[in-house]
Amino acid sequence: MQFTWDGYFKQVGSAIIGCSSEFDLAKYSLCYITRPGKQCKQSLGGKPLVIQTYTWENSSYGNGKKYIGSAFPATP
């Protein structure tokens, strides 16, 4: 989906509907903290799990800090 947020047009975006637990949010946040803008490779129950993160730098607040732009499961 495409949308405008804080005055900036986001060309590619996504949403996860109906599945976020605190465990999921912590896992995605940890991947962003350790590998911002990259793939975070893990295993869950012996199965490979890859989470891709993207940073958001076009912000009018935060003095140029980077924020989580997206984090989602990717193909291993």
Rank of each mutant, 00 (worst) to 15 (best):
Y28W: 08
L25K: 15
I51H: 09
Y28Q: 12
I33F: 03
D24H: 09
Y32T: 10
C40A: 07
D24R: 09
Q52H: 12
S29D: 15
K27Y: 04
K38I: 01
Q52N: 13
P36Y: 06
Q42E: 12
A26R: 14
C31G: 06
I33Y: 06
K38H: 03
K47R: 11
Y54C: 11
Q42S: 06
I51A: 00
L44C: 07
S29I: 10
Y32A: 06
Y54V: 15
V50G: 00
I51V: 10
Y54E: 15
Q52P: 00
Y28F: 10
Y54L: 14
C31V: 08
Q52T: 14
G45V: 11
Y28A: 13
S43T: 14
I33G: 03
L30C: 04
K27W: 02
Y32M: 04
Q39T: 12
Q52S: 14
Q42V: 05
Y32D: 07
K47F: 01
G46P: 05
Q42I: 08
G37S: 02
L49V: 14
Y28K: 13
P36R: 06
P36W: 02
K27C: 05
Q52R: 14
Q52D: 11
L25Y: 05
G46A: 06
G45P: 05
G46T: 07
T34Q: 10
K41G: 00
T53I: 05
I33H: 11
K27T: 15
C31H: 09
Y28H: 12
D24V: 12
P36M: 01
L25M: 12
Y32I: 02
G37N: 09
T53V: 05
Q39R: 08
L25I: 13
K27P: 00
Q39P: 01
G46H: 04
C31K: 08
K38L: 08
R35W: 03
L44P: 00
A26F: 03
G45R: 12
L30A: 13
V50I: 10
P48M: 04
R35H: 12
C31M: 09
D24F: 02
